[in-house]
Design a protein around this nucleic acid. Sequence first.
DNA 1: TTGCGGCCATTTTTT
DNA 2: ATGGCCGCAA
Length: 861
Amino acid sequence: MPPPSPNDHADAILFASESARACGRDRHIPEREPSEPLAEPVKQPHSALPDAPSGVGDDVRAGHVPRAGGIAERARAMAGPRRAPGGAYLAGLNPEQREAVETVEGPLLVLAGAGTGKTRVLTTRIAHILHLGLAWPSQILAVTFTNKAAREMKERIAGMVGEEVEGMPWLGTFHSIGVRMLRRHAELVGLKSGFTILDTDDQIRLLKQLLQAEQIDEKRWPARLLANTIDGWKNRGLAPEAVPAGEGATFANGRGKALYAAYQARLKALNAADFGDLLLEGIRLLRENPDVLAEYHRRFRYILVDEYQDTNVAQYLWLRLLAQGSHNVCCVGDDDQSIYGWRGAEVDNILRFESDFPGAKVIRLERNYRSTGHILGAAGHLIAHNEGRLGKTLFSEGVAGEKVTVTGAWDSQEEARAIGEEIEQLQHHGHPLNQVAILMRASFQMREFEERFVTLGLSYRVIGGPRFYERAEIRDALAYLRCISQPADDLAFERIVNVPKRGLGDAALRQIHDHARALGLPLQEAARQLAQGDALKPKVRLALRELVQSFERWRGQMNGMAQSQLAEIVLDESGYTEMWQKDRSADAAGRLDNLKELVRSMEPFENLTGFLEHVALVMDAEGGAGSDAVSLMTLHSAKGLEFDTVFLPGWEEGLFPHQRALDEQGRAGLEEERRLAYVGLTRARFRAKVFFASNRRIHGMWQSSVPSRFLDELPDGHVEVTESRGGQGWGGGQAGRYGYGPSRFDSAGTFGSSYSTPGWQRAQAARSGSSGGGSPGGSGRGGGFSEPAGRYAPTRGGGPVIEGQLIAKSTGAPSPFRQGERVFHQKFGYGEVMAVEGNKLTVQFDKAGEKHVLDSFLQAT
DNA sequence: TTGCGGCCATTTTTT
DNA sequence: ATGGCCGCAA
């Protein structure tokens, strides 16, 4: 590392003296030793300041010194007359929250249940640290997962300490902080400081090329799978050489590890990093360069982590490295809300906190300020079925409120109709739609609600879904801009070389590639040379020359105008806008709107580079949240939000808990699904309304469904079973079979007749099936499949069956039904089998017409 | 090079 | 049922 620039020292002195003054005014804090707060900030800036190795302007000097007076002023203001020991910001905290805020030294885990004021603790804690003068804003590392969370945190801190928050360059997402570190020390990990950040799309295209070059069959070994595998390794902090040989062999007959290494080499050659690298290379940087690590140790006096239950191994390693300096690491999270295991989050991180950080203190926040007693009671009882948890019981001092309702519907359409009606009722009673959300397990469930709401004229808004910057037209437009800004960005060049179509197809691209590889040039430069020579066919050469010249022209204009203006010119002159204008498909107009929106969103940025950096990391555009509308989203995207009324449709076995989670993750998968249910319930302030449907169309085929086991795990005392209007609901048959004891759903006759339900029908089928043995359905609180666990209870021939706790996947066994046979189906009535394909049948129903159904839902007549 | 037709998979999502 | 992707034919 180069030595610090001379300026650093002078600044440090100024900085130190300011800090001493700031603290000096705080001197009268009764409970502190006089020397203690003084000592650190004075000593700290000296050691922390030697900064970016390059010495180029960075946070501390650039941002803070001029503002130091401001800090002192703030401190004085806060230390003013109204200040109780500690400051006004501590006033509204409950004792646990206050303890979490004031326990500033040493490792601390705050187990913050849903709605217990987690963000408040985090932000107040930062304000507190600043207020006491324990650290400068630039000495606090505060990490979140999403940009949204970072933004919110920043806003709330600003509400408490004012502009000082602007001096917190290390408040951000894991990734943005990772980039920040890497940009300063890029050379140490084999990159140049201006490296490009590749998103998933770029990553997959790169891997595709790699697979092609290696002659690996992409059908058998899709690039997507390799990308996931590599991401998985990166999530676990494994560089190519660290991948265990056995695991490295799982992809493409043992070539996984080598491919990973090749991919990393390719990234370096492109001067690019993918999302995983932003952390993984950060870890490498800190491990291999003790001086850099020491610098950050000196810098970060306090480390705070939000949503700790979502951290993966790489993030944990990264944090641990950094926390070895001050040991002042505070992680806030809730093991019961860990729902991202499937993308590498390790609940273990939070479960093991105390042993990972010796001397750690754990504070539980269990006082809930959000939900009514019944909702908390129901959610708490449900989550208590999980084994792997630290254990918390939320309580509230509020009212019991309305019970959680459980409503059965005949099929998903009726479910949507029932929910639509309830929402209209609420609306008539003056309930704002903004305070209503429908939270579902999978996004395909959304369509039904959208359709229903369109007919009802109910305004709704879909949260989540494809992000603005991930849309094809936006990515295309960005690729043009990247080509201008970074002529060596090969991936961007490839993306738009023939978009719109300009006759530069695979063949032309291959030639450019070959030329580039031969001379070690970026594609764009290779293209420029080829356009001049005569190696290409005239037509191709002309098109290429046109493109290359355009880029040069645009690049020349780059500095003379606002980037948004340049973008307009580029989109126009490249023919890209025209391409969509000519497009007759339904969404073309929307795409043009998106492009306009893109151009508009560029305006506030300093320059094109600044904008592109923003886009790479902050992949969200502010969507209009203005109007009063019902929110539709998945349970995953609901985490962290709250609504007065929450509808939770689709609580059926196979959908929720999702079959795949059960198949692939077993018990762990089930527990994560249960946490998801818990997250859903705890989003509600006053009303949580659970629904399930007895029939649902999945992959275009009607399937009968069994109510979710989670329904049985809701305690009687907090739940009310209602019947959807006009619905036939579902009979009591299946409940209780999961070993959690009897529940109210076991009493027959809650809904209509038990004898018309799919559960009963299936029990009948089981009884007449070849296995015999098991107790017949329909008796006692029965209808349950009480065959010994682990044994199949086939329907006729064997369809979905219950094995232990899981419903097995449909077997590939041949269907027992023949073409021409008369059959009966729960939803569609009588019909005739038209075609048989494995266990999938095409049936011509007398009333309902031709449908595709699984054989296990049919009975012979 | 482009355009169309068949084949396959299809939970959840951030950076 | 439906959309995305690949391969093949014009």
